[in-house]
């Protein structure tokens, strides 16, 4: 084996070792704000969100599709909330298909949005933009400081 091949294998080995450590740490790190684990009902709601591909039009934390609005804080936004969400589900507004959710399914989706809402804020209007290019986001547990 040539000297350069040995060097390359060495570099890869180091990168892989770092990657393993990094993954173990990332997989064992919770979000910045401590929240309850998803309840069984919320998990059901999340599964409905997936089965019906709500993500292809809607976003959570700005990730997802662009045809509908972001739903991260739909649960707690003024003028919106559980009843508003339920009203939307089976109404079929604009490009949104008209679904046929049972009351139980609607509750599950609402529970999911409720727990997502507790994890943070998006869009994060009170984030601080720093000179280094860094953005210090405002966390859920900091809201009381307003």
């Amino acid at each position: 084996m040539s000297a350069s091949s040995r060097l390359y294998i060495f570099v890869i080995a180091i990168l892989l070792a770092l990657f393993c450590i990094y993954n173990v740490v990332v997989y064992n790190t919770d979000g910045y704000v401590a929240v309850e684990k998803l309840s069984p009902t919320a998990v059901k709601g999340q599964q409905l969100f997936q089965n019906n591909r709500c993500w292809s039009c809607h976003q959570l934390y700005g990730l997802g599709g662009y045809l509908g609005p972001d739903l991260t804080n739909i649960y707690s936004t003024e003028g919106k909330g559980p009843l508003y969400i339920k009203a939307f589900l089976n109404s079929g507004v604009k490009s949104m298909p008209q679904y046929n959710f049972s009351e139980e399914e609607k509750d599950a989706l609402v529970q999911y949005f409720k727990q997502v809402d507790q994890t943070g804020i998006y869009p994060n209007y009170n984030a601080e933009i720093e000179a280094t290019g860094w953005v210090k986001i405002k966390y859920r547990n900091e809201t009381s400081r307003d």
Partner: peptide, 10 residues
């Protein structure tokens, strides 16, 4: 799955 933020990040 039960840790929304971790799950979403992963």
């Amino acid at each position: 799955r039960l840790n929304f933020i971790k799950d979403f990040a992963v």
